[in-house]
Design a protein around this nucleic acid. Structure first.
Length: 565
RNA sequence: CGGGGCGUGGCGCAGCCUGGUAGCGCACCUGCUUUGGGAGCAGGGGGUCGCCGGUUCGAAUCCGGCCGCCCCGACCA
């Protein structure tokens, strides 16, 4: 591709509203442009990257027996009502001219299962893996960071159909194989982490996380351990409790309502406090008092999974009516169920500090079990430095680039996707679903590999393998030699971008570094006289061996490319 | 949805407080010079100042309403 004809609007300055690196560089390098909140257009160079990611995914999905299909984005809302998903907040809804209710697909479990319900009759029709690359519409509460979280995006979504749980395990394992290869080939640093299965039930799920500063998730990492912080468990760091006493002692803590104030006033570590967090079940309406250590935070995902329903923080009025004065509540004497985090329950010690359920007062010397009844559960968020297998945990922000999910019969049952087994018994198909966001692969790659000058693509994702820069404005020997080299590369099937613009050397180099093709070949007066062009890898400042012009050029470039990642 | 911020040529911004000819840098067009790290000189084109309404002789500027976009949080099967 010649840059004189390419639509590549590079910018010297970052857009004022861009924060994330992938957002800034995506716009500056001319890959993407914004149409509206969470709505992004892929320009030619950016789309080439996206399609390279798609190509890798397609190859690996085919390699595990996946079959590619294409399902409409526009769908009857009724289908979604049948699975109880006709009213989701994130769902784009519309009507056709006849007034029929339609939705834009957020994902494609419903239509996929709908088809399979009609097409699968017998256990002989299973297993199957079907996938597609298709647009998803999600009315996100807050789109952000360029293409990282958008309201419309392309997802590779795959669905597995098996006769039983063992079959699902096999399909699930195949996807792990494919996904591991996909993210390796894309050149990402990634982790496969345990993730929340949500309220959908199912027997487990994993997310593929690419660490990067703009990530919206947090992953907890230790050797041999990787989990989304939403579900991560670890051994807490110890805390020195004050000496126990025979019975709780009331102490005056006037106006002291925060953990810091109380621990400072009493001269005890924050971790010696029992932080009381009253929650109300969204469906049951039941109030529960959750206790975590004063230096810990309640993990709402783990809490929700433990209680079996979503929860919200209790309102001050509810707290005052059922437990005690806000700021001074505690488990002792509280007439509500108490859930104590394992970091408290497992110590078996006394000496804790808790609210006294009386204004301006706390209790010291509190001992769980003796002074109040509780149910023990792991409901806290892990902290950096907590131990897993004796090794301190670290926590990193990451982008979710893919997920794999055991669905079970969540969709096959309501949509009547069944088959007859050998015994003639009708059974629901056991399903899995598996997503990957190619745009997030591109964004995560930018985040992980960019430097001060711009993007640095791995060969697997680069929009072009070679960026040929002709120096010298207008016609001249450099331009002629570069022209010949460019044509040779094209003829040899090497994807090359040719900077044939009448621009200064600095501008051409700056644009080449911004765009980040793996190999830059410069044809300039300096080396032309000796009959060669200069080669520069994007990732290193080291000048590579020169490329001879003429017959050996293609072979030399091929060699250089082989040395680059 | 709560909090904060911003809307002025393609991009980045000033002007608004204190109403009176819409400005700067980059980019763009023409010519000449220049040509290995975002060139110089000269000339030139391009803006409903987000939208609607109000105040005023006069509104980018003041007032009201609306819309859009960004950031933080909530949220994100």
């Amino acid at each position: 591709m010649r840059m004189t004809s390419l639509l590549l609007p590079t910018e010297r300055e970052a857009p004022a509203d861009a924060e994330a690196l992938s957002h800034v560089l995506g716009v500056r390098a001319g890959l993407i442009r914004q149409l509206g909140a969470g709505l992004w257009t892929w320009l030619p160079a950016g789309w080439r990257v996206h399609e390279r990611a798609v190509g890798i995914i397609r190859e690996e999905m085919n390699a595990i027996g996946g079959q590619e299909v294409l399902i409409p984005v526009l769908q009857p809302r009724d289908l979604w009502r049948r699975t109880g998903r006709g009213d989701l907040d994130e769902q784009f809804r519309l009507e056709d001219r006849k007034g029929s209710e339609m939705v834009l697909a957020m994902t494609h479990e419903e239509p996929m299962t709908f088809h399979m319900a009609q097409l699968v009759r017998s256990y002989r029709d299973l297993p199957k893996i079907l996938y597609q690359f298709q647009t998803k519409g999600r009315d996100e509460p807050r789109p952000r960071a360029g293409v990282l979280r958008t309201r419309e995006f392309i997802m590779k979504d795959a669905y597995s159909f098996d006769r039983d749980a063992d079959g699902l395990e096999e399909s699930y394992a195949r996807h792990i194989t494919a996904y591991d290869r996909i993210f390796d080939r894309a050149g990402l640093e990634w982790y496969r982490v345990e993730s929340d299965v949500g309220m959908m039930g199912g027997s487990g799920a994993h997310e593929y996380m690419a660490p990067c500063p703009a990530g919206e998730n947090e992953v907890a990492l230790a050797p041999g351990y990787a989990a989304n912080v939403e579900v991560a468990s670890a051994e807490p760091q110890p805390v020195q409790l004050p000496a126990p006493s025979a019975a709780p002692q009331e102490v005056s803590t006037p106006g002291l309502t925060t953990v810091d104030q109380v621990s400072g006033h009493l001269g005890v570590p924050a971790g010696a406090l029992l932080k009381a967090f009253p929650v109300v079940g969204e469906t049951s309406g039941r109030l529960t008092l959750v206790l975590v250590r004063g230096d810990h935070r309640v993990n709402e995902v783990k809490l929700r999974n433990h209680l079996g329903e979503p929860v919200r923080a209790a309102h001050p009025a509810e707290i005052a009516a059922q437990i005690g004065p806000v700021g001074f509540i505690g488990p002792v004497g509280a007439q509500v169920p108490v859930v104590a985090d394992l970091a408290i329950a497992q110590t078996g010690q006394g000496g804790w500090v808790a609210g006294a359920n009386r204004p301006d007062a706390h209790l010291t010397g509190v001992e769980p079990g003796r002074d109040f009844a509780f149910e023990a559960a792991d409901v806290r968020t892990v902290e950096e430095g907590d131990l897993v297998g004796g090794v301190p945990l670290r926590i990193e922000p990451a982008i979710e680039v893919g997920n794999i999910f055991r669905l079970g019969t969540r969709y096959s049952e309501p949509l009547g996707a069944t088959f007859l087994d050998e015994a003639g018994v009708e059974r629901p198909i056991v399903m899995g679903s598996y997503g990957i966001g190619p745009a997030r692969i591109a964004a995560a790659t930018i985040e992980q590999r960019a430097d001060e000058s711009g993007i640095s693509w791995p060969r697997a994702l680069a929009p072009w393998q070679v960026h040929v820069v002709a120096l010298g404005k207008g016609a001249g020997p450099e331009r002629d030699a570069a022209e010949v080299l460019y044509e040779q590369l094209l003829a040899a099937g090497i994807e090359a971008l040719f900077d044939d613009r009448d621009a200064g050397a600095g501008e051409k180099f700056a644009d080449a570094e911004l765009l980040g093709c793996p190999l830059r070949i410069t044809v300039g007066r300096r080396s032309l006289e000796e009959g060669h062009a200069e080669a520069q890898g994007r990732r290193s400042a080291v000048t590579l061996p020169g490329v001879p012009l003429g017959d050996g050029a293609v072979a030399a470039v091929t060699d250089l490319l082989a040395q680059l990642a």
